[in-house]
């Protein structure tokens, strides 16, 4: 299952004023794999994702995309590379329907007009290709959808845009059991379609269910990047809480405490 590295971050540093949030973080996303990014609150997961998305400029570090060095200076750069972020709060407009949301900001049509037919068909085909069966009509307003369905729409949007890397920030945080499985299923399918998927999660069950690799952040440092089948849940929890577990992890985690 070891795919080609599609996104490689090396030596990423980021601070907000006097507070150092990320210390020389290395992080690799491989095509066709789900990489789980885990860590305690304040470990720097969201900051790392926002650096990738171009929302926060990095203080230092390099980004290579598909082997080429690139500069991500803003959200548009990230979008152009095909890096899509699915935020925790979803970023969908409730008053618009599924099609309008999936094409928001990138509507199709000549001039300033809208080609509803083309957009509707593309949206429907994308959802169908992901095996989404729970949405009754692509013309349903988002306000009428359940939490899982909203998550589905937000993720499908990433697929529609031929994204190559999708970062999902806590996609199952607010979902029930059945809906969680639907979303995890979708996450797995994204990777199977050849995308590089990053799953940020607190839930070890979710992580072990879908992730191929697990990257653990501990107080702004990358404690370990391991294959899921080589570790146990207990080890990962130790890495999250203490920065090391047996041979794995930071050599002297206590020095990481600033």
């Amino acid at each position: 299952m070891s795919g080609e590295p599609i996104l490689e971050l090396t030596g990423v540093r980021k601070g907000f004023g006097p507070v150092r949030v990320l210390h020389d973080v290395d992080f690799t996303v491989r095509a066709g794999e789900v990489t789980a990014l885990v860590g305690d609150n304040g470990a720097g997961k969201s900051t790392l994702v926002k650096c990738v998305a171009g929302i926060h400029p990095m203080d230092a570090g390099t980004v290579r995309f598909a082997g080429e060095p690139v500069r991500v200076a803003g959200p548009r750069d990230a979008a152009r590379l095909g890096i899509e972020i699915v935020y925790q709060d979803l970023a969908l407009a409730d008053n618009l329907d599924i099609v309008a949301n999936m094409f928001l900001g990138r509507e199709r049509g000549p001039g300033g007009l809208l080609d509803e037919a083309a957009m509707e068909r593309a949206a429907r085909e994308t959802l169908a290709s992901l095996g989404v069966r729970t949405v009754r009509s692509v013309r349903t307003p988002v306000s009428a959808l359940s939490g899982g369905q909203r998550q589905t729409v937000a993720i499908a949007k990433a697929v529609l845009w031929d994204s190559r890397v999708v970062l999902l920030d806590e996609p199952t945080a607010a979902l029930g059991v059945a809906q969680t499985w639907q979303v995890l299923d979708l996450v797995r399918r994204l990777a199977d379609q050849g995308l590089g998927v990053v799953l940020i999660s607190h839930n070890m069950a979710d992580v072990f269910a879908v992730a191929d690799r697990i990257a653990v952040l501990y107080l702004g440092r990358m404690a370990a990047e391991v294959a899921t089948r080589e570790v146990t849940q207990t080890q990962v929890v130790e890495l999250i809480t203490a920065g090391r577990s047996g041979e794995l992890g930071l050599a002297r985690p206590e020095t990481a405490v600033v």
Partner: peptide
């Protein structure tokens, strides 16, 4: 029927979503 109108609705529905959509 226009992109402009769609964006007006989007900003009115969820300005943050609209911003992130570019």
């Amino acid at each position: 029927r226009t992109r402009y109108g769609r964006h007006v609705y989007a900003v009115g529905g969820n300005a943050e979503a609209a911003r992130r959509a570019g």
